[in-house]
């Protein structure tokens, strides 16, 4: 990994950590607080592409494991991985890579803004929602003992918020691509 890519991944990891420290932004539409950390995971994919996004999320997870309170609400330490929702954290890693991979494949500079945004949304939805929930639900169903189908139903309540985040991440990915494109230059 070149020094530049290492720095880009580290800086994005810092952005994900910082997003967890901001006061949650309340959305008038849902009246629920949105924690921006999983949004950061999707944006890592849309902005950096698969390889560097995976590195960024891996750095965040390493920081959690070594005992720094970097997750939203000041959570951190190995105890976080003992929770029944730890599968979602593993899902972040794969989800960021999938989002990044699809962004690289689907989006290029010649497309119109609308096509770019829709493609970014698809990448965020498949990577940041479907993939993350796949791992989260699998882990919850097996380790949490709820069974896969009940874990699936129990998780559905959180899906609308995450789809909303995918929209935001797609728009942000498109805005960053217009202003400071990093995606086309591969590692």
């Amino acid at each position: 990994m070149s020094t530049r890519n290492l720095v880009l991944s580290s800086l994005f990891a810092a952005i994900i950590v910082a997003l967890g420290m901001l006061p949650p932004i309340y959305l008038a539409v849902f009246a629920v607080p949105i924690t921006a950390q999983s949004l950061g995971v999707m944006m890592a994919g849309t902005v950096l592409g698969a390889y560097r996004a995976g590195a960024a999320v891996l750095i965040v997870l390493v920081l959690v494991a070594i005992g720094l309170p970097v997750l939203s609400g000041g959570r951190g330490g190995l105890a976080v991985f003992a929770g029944p929702t730890a599968g979602f954290l593993l899902g972040w890693l794969v989800g960021a890579v999938v989002t990044g991979y699809l962004s690289e494949k689907l989006v290029n500079a010649e497309q119109s803004g609308l096509v770019q945004t829709v493609s970014f949304f698809l990448a965020c939805f498949i990577g940041g929602v479907v993939t993350v929930y796949f791992f989260g639900i699998l882990y919850l169903g097996i380790v949490g003992g709820t069974g896969i189908s009940k874990a699936f139903l129990g998780s559905l309540a959180f899906v609308p918020g995450d789809i909303f985040k995918a929209v935001i991440a797609a728009l942000a990915g498109r805005a960053v691509m217009a202003g400071y494109p990093l995606l086309p230059q591969r590692a």
Partner: peptide, 10 residues
């Protein structure tokens, strides 16, 4: 190095 960078830039 990466851990140090994150702590420095947050």
């Amino acid at each position: 190095l990466a851990a140090g960078l994150v702590i420095r830039f947050v």
